[in-house]
Each structure stands twice: as structure tokens, then as C-alpha cells.
Amino acid sequence: MISQQNFWPTNLKKLRNRKNMSQESLALLLNMSRSKYNAHESGQTVNPVVEDLFRISDYFGMSIDSLLRVDLTKLSESKIRELEEGNDLYRKGTQLRVLSVTVDKNDTENVEYVPVKAKAGYRNGFSDPEFIAALPKFSMPNLPKSAMFRMFPTTGDSMLPIPEGADVIGSFVQDWTNIKPRTMCIVILKGEQDMVFKQVTQQDEGFLLESLNTVYQPYTVPASDVLEIWKFYSYQTNEIPEQQTDLQTMAKAIKEIRDDLKIMKTKK
């Protein structure tokens, strides 16, 4: 059961009782005083500090999002075990993610660049302030102040006509539920999966990823495999785009007609 209500206090009590632990013994394991832990569980702590969120989330093996937004008292034991095992069935993209950023001497956020050689490390260190601080960084005066930006390199030709090797600047997407169908995004995936540049469409339990180059087949990824999403803002390249041929223009027109027909069918 998902709600905008904050279930943090009742969830802590539920999980502590499942372990048959006293507040004092749990507080000791969490390296905090009993009075501080009791303030969390009794609801006196309205806005838990990030360190406490991480500490308690790590101990119970459950996402911060579930601890805050899912009423665990309404779930069966099997569902709670699924959450503990990392199968966060309730994540819809609005889970709390702490984004590490750097600022310049004027306290303006930098645009960090994730080079190809750092892509694997980024998946493990994307929330580590020290890792982010070590990335190349620059500033761009014309970027909106209302969003956070990062630059990622692209590989392959799946997004032609955007040329292979282009550097894509994306704005951080905090709420995945706001992504419109076929929004071009950089998607950061878990494990050995790559960070990809695709058209993104949200589905029930994940995302459909499509290439602009129709040679590549679309595929889906579960939301649990996604770490971050950065909405396309612009790209940098040292290549001059080739002029479109008549065949490419016709193919584009046909695709637009098909898309319009799909929209018309859904409205009927």
C-alpha cells in the first residue's frame, strides 16, 4: 500500500518487533542513543537526517523509499521479505535519492563529466561525494538554474543521427513518474549493465528503452535495475551532421504519421 503519508515511525517499530529487539539494543547496533532512536520511532523526528536514513536502511536491508512511503504493517511477511531481498515492487521513481554534486567558488553547481573510463566506477560511486568530486567538471553559463546537469559520453550508433561519440548533457530526473513517453534520456543501470542513451517510456514495473536508429530493437528494464535517469538537454560533438537524403526524410515522415495514428487509436 503506497501513500504520501510518512510511515517511518510505524515501520521502524514493525521491523524492530520482527527482530524481537528492544529499542535500547537496536539503538546500540545503530550507533545512536536510545533517546534518539525513540524519537524516530515515536514520530518526534519529523525530518530524519540523511545519515540516520542510510544507517537504518542499511541495517534493515530495505530501501529508504519503502521505509518512508510503504505501510509495512499492511503487507504480508512474504512481501516484506521481498523488500528486504531488494525486490522493491513499490518503487515508482519517486524514491529518495541523494545526489552528490560539486560547486565552484561562487557556490554555483558544476557540470560533472563522466568519461568512458569512469563509467563502471560511476555506477558504484554515483552517490559518493569523493568520487563525484574527482570527476572532470566545468560550468556552462546558459544552463537553467532550476535543474542539475551532468555530461555523459555516448558510444555506438544506436542514436543516429546524433553521432557516435557525442557528449550528452542531461538534467537530473528526480521523479521518474513525470517522464513522458519516448523522452530521450541517459539511463544509469546497475551491475555490469551499461549506461545507455535511449528514448524512455515508463511501463508498469520498468521502462521501455528505444533507439532512434531503428536497426536496434527496443527492450525493457525493470525499475529495480535503474540507478539514475538524466533527461536529454543538449549534446556536444566535433562532427558536422550530414544532410538528410530524400529517403531519410520520407522515413521520418512515415514514422511521424505512424506515431500520430497510435495516438489517435489510444484516444478512441
Rank of each mutant, 00 (worst) to 15 (best):
S100M: 10
R69M: 07
L67P: 00
M140I: 12
K79S: 11
E164S: 15
V114N: 00
N124G: 15
D104G: 01
L143P: 09
D128T: 13
P163R: 02
D71S: 11
T155W: 02
S78D: 12
A166Q: 09
S139V: 14
D107S: 14
L75S: 04
T94S: 11
G121R: 00
F138W: 05
V101Y: 05
L89A: 04
N110I: 02
A120K: 09
E82F: 01
E109P: 04
A120M: 13
F138G: 04
P141W: 00
M140F: 07
T154A: 09
K137D: 06
N142A: 08
R123W: 04
L89E: 05
K137Q: 11
V98M: 12
R69G: 00
L96D: 01
K119V: 15
E112N: 14
L96K: 01
D88E: 14
A134S: 15
S146A: 11
G165D: 03
F152D: 00
L89F: 13
K117C: 05
P129V: 15
K92Y: 08
L160G: 03
G125L: 13
K105D: 15
S127W: 07
V70I: 15
E85V: 06
S127T: 12
S100I: 11
S158E: 14
I162S: 03
Y90R: 04
L68A: 04
N142S: 10
P153N: 04
V98G: 02
N106Y: 13
K74R: 14
T155F: 02
M148Y: 08
V111I: 15
A118S: 14
E77S: 13
G125T: 09
G121A: 10
V114G: 00
N142V: 10
P129Q: 12
R97D: 08
L75K: 03
G86P: 03
S127A: 14
I162L: 03
L89R: 07
I132Q: 01
F126E: 05
L83V: 11
I162M: 12
R97L: 15
Y113C: 06
V101R: 13
S78P: 00
I162N: 00
S158W: 06
G121H: 06
Y122F: 14
M140S: 07
K74Y: 06
K137S: 15
N124C: 02
K105H: 11
A134Q: 10
Y113W: 10
L135T: 03
N106G: 15
G93H: 03
R150S: 08
P115Q: 04
